[in-house]
């Protein structure tokens, strides 16, 4: 248990510091809650605040819309496939790079941060340029390729951080007791990285599900949920339905992210 540190009077946060900190946190949260409020407003033309009345009817309307369901299904499918690819390739890379030392390692590490270090628009336009040059028609698989590319990085980062916390002596002890590489992976490493894998997978899934910047370049005529949403932003007539979808999207992405946070908290691992 971390004991509460005793602080001398001169080393405590002043009232001003506290107010600034909490104001910053409030700034981060308030806009998100606005969405929840607006999903229930009876007003469907303006963004009038406070809402003149509250209703549940927009949920009903949105539920009956086939285009929303199609976009949702596509987004879930893309996120699932991209996450699966990322889990496989990201984990392989993490295992190869966790403790090894070899010539060119720095360059490879750089390659594994580039897709998230460069702005999404670069990834998007670059993939588009490549698809155009290769004569590849954009569609489901081009979206997946774009998403998997940055999802690999997310999984890789999560798994490699966990692998580096595993003392090398555990692997040696396992081999010393007669386990070969595969058995060591199954009985010692896998249980240790399982939560990191799960967390990385869920973050990757959430990121893919919500992605718009790369997707707009690689989707062709396909419409993922974020693309549907993006189009709605410029069509004021459908505002109440947009509100409802916004709330749904927030809830769908929130669950895996909260779970991932719980799974990666260091005090959750025994030992």
């Amino acid at each position: 248990m971390p004991s509460r540190r005793m602080r001398a009077a001169w080393d405590r946060a002043t009232l001003g510091q506290k107010i600034a900190a909490f104001a910053g946190l409030a700034f981060l949260h308030l806009p998100v809650w606005v969405i929840f409020l607006y999903a229930f407003t009876t007003e469907d033309r303006t963004y009038q605040f406070p809402p003149p009345g509250l209703t549940l009817k927009w949920f009903e309307v949105a539920f009956a819309r086939a285009d929303i369901w199609a976009a949702l299904k596509l987004s879930l499918a893309v996120a699932s496939v991209a996450t699966a690819i990322a889990l496989l390739l990201g984990t392989l890379a993490a295992f190869a790079l966790a403790r090894s030392r070899f010539r060119g390692r720095e360059l490879i590490t750089l390659l594994f941060v580039l897709p998230i270090a460069l702005p999404g628009i670069v990834t998007g336009i670059a993939l588009l340029a490549a698809f155009k040059m290769g004569g590849i028609q954009p569609g489901f698989w081009t979206i997946v390729v774009g998403h998997a590319t940055f999802c690999i990085v997310i999984v890789h980062n999560n798994v490699i951080a966990r692998l580096r916390r595993i003392p090398p002596s555990w692997v040696e002890a396992s081999m010393d007791l007669g386990a070969d590489g595969l058995q060591t992976f199954r009985h010692v490493l896998l249980p240790q990285i399982a939560t990191a894998l799960l967390a990385g997978g869920m973050l990757a899934f959430a990121l893919s599900f919500d992605e718009i910047i790369v997707t707009l370049f690689t989707a062709g005529h396909e419409r993922t949920l974020p693309i549907w949403f993006f189009n709605e932003l410029f069509r004021p007539r459908e505002r109440p339905i947009t509100n409802v979808v916004a709330v749904t999207v927030v809830l769908i992405t929130l669950v895996p992210i909260l779970l991932a946070y719980r799974l990666t908290r260091p005090n959750d691992t025994r030992g």
Binding site: L28, H29, P31, V32, V34, I35, L203, A206, D210, I212, P226, F229, F230, L233, T242, A246, V249, V250, T253, L254, I257
Partner: peptide, 12 residues
């Protein structure tokens, strides 16, 4: 808020 849907935040 960091992980909350990007588009939803813009919309909000």
């Amino acid at each position: 808020p960091m992980w909350t849907s990007y588009l939803v935040k813009v919309y909000a």
